[in-house]
Write a protein that binds this DNA or RNA. Structure first.
Lengths: 233, 233
DNA sequence: GGATGGCAGTGACATAAGTCATTCCACCTG
DNA sequence: CAGGTGGAATGACTTATGTCACTGCCATCC
């Protein structure tokens, strides 16, 4: 990967750092290190000491926890302009979760010391960080809510609905889209195992709400699918 | 409740605000409002717009989510010197969870506007806030991990162990302590229902690890109880 | 004393979730 | 074409979790 990315431009598009002057961006960019990861490579593992802030410049990464039994629970998937590990940078603790690259990914890395210093110089950045961390907290609360209150069937219906709305194309048969990953990946995301994904998809199909063919999905009844979320779990 | 509490003193003991000068504490205290809640009263409900920072001066509060079916999931219990809703103060969104007083509770309240202004004037406070929010984020990730990877039996064993270590007294029979609430409350905390608490307690007792009598618990085998956490769930 | 209400224990049962083993199928590679 | 590989479907089974209904205990209040 010899391709170059303009780091200052990436930084400017980062939610955390928007509204900074070009000069400020440049000074920050000067302190970043470019890191490249190929698909599947680990940025860091849960429990390691945190040494800095990671900004995704290109590609996508998956933030997740692993259990003793080899199960996974995905906390978030982050793309360009998003940051990873904003929080341990500040509280000094270890990384709470592991992160791997989903695709070939380019990271702008700022050391903990440099970023902290930058925040002191630019108090409004600290407030931005707070907003970002706040959003992440909401995400996590949402995951807790799902894990605690909903069935896998409902979680599956929910993700299918989101996919249909964001990536689906309307056709004569219904709303069509393609699953973004294998059943296994979907299972990790929902905090379960492959078989249950398979079975629940089949069940939704049997009920006439969907048509599934490998990764191709056609939602035939959006209303019905939405109703699954309401049915008491 | 006519009893008065020195707000500036409380603020000084708050993790968020330690290391401030007495003058600064005074100026902040001048902007706080004292609020009193009796046991069971709601500070606010999930979804309401956030209007300020709550600092627990006396008593305890419970932060939790509610499901459609009336189930609850406790996110945290906070006591004196701890803050509630540090985050929505900054990201401007609604409260992500509800909070009620567990006991008669006194709250020092600072309006969103005042606290934000204070943070701009005192950038190091913003960093403190980040540290606190960071700790909260770790808490939440911990909850997700538990919900996703462990059985109720394991979660119960884990809380019993923590209680034994923090509040237990060693006697001839083992480590004795008293459950801090009803089975129902414990169930909410673990994200389950009363009956399962009852059954799992009985099961642990049948296995010789515990002796239970209503809320009095004697751990007879700390090692064995700890081993429950390791056994694959 | 009797009534009441909150809490705890328990059996019977229903359903959700997870495990294991096997088969199938599409695709690639030599 | 044979063989291998990875993902997916599926049946049989076990376990975990949740629901409902009922019982009993104990404190409190009239």
């Amino acid at each position: 990967m010899t391709e170059r990315t303009d780091l200052a431009a990436v930084l400017g598009k980062t939610g955390l750092l928007s509204n900074l002057s070009p000069a400020e961006l440049q000074s920050l960019a000067a302190r970043t290190v470019r890191k490249l990861f190929s698909a599947g490579e680990w940025l860091f593992a849960e429990g390691e000491p945190c040494n800095g802030l990671h900004i995704v410049a290109r590609g996508r990464v998956r933030i997740f926890k692993t259990s003793m039994n080899g199960r996974e629970q995905v906390l978030a998937v982050e793309g360009p302009g998003r940051t990873v590990a904003e929080l341990p940078v500040f509280d000094g603790g270890p990384y709470p979760a592991s992160v791997v690259a989903l695709e070939d990914t380019e990271i702008a890395f700022i050391s903990q010391r440099d970023f902290r210093a930058f925040c002191i110089e630019h108090p409004e950045v600290a407030l931005k960080v707070l907003a970002v961390v706040g959003a992440r907290l909401r995400q996590l609360v949402g995951i807790i809510e799902e894990l605690s209150f909903t069935t896998i069937r409902q979680r599956l219906a929910s993700t299918l609905l989101k996919l249909a709305q964001s990536q689906g194309t309307k056709t004569a048969r219904g709303v069509e889209f393609r699953l973004p990953g294998s059943h296994q990946e979907l299972a990790n995301q929902l905090g379960t195992v492959r078989e249950l994904i398979s079975r629940n998809l089949m069940r939704l199909q049997a009920e006439g709400l969907l048509e599934v063919d490998a990764r191709e999905v056609v939602v035939k009844d959006m209303q019905g699918l939405a109703a699954v979320l309401e049915a008491q779990g």
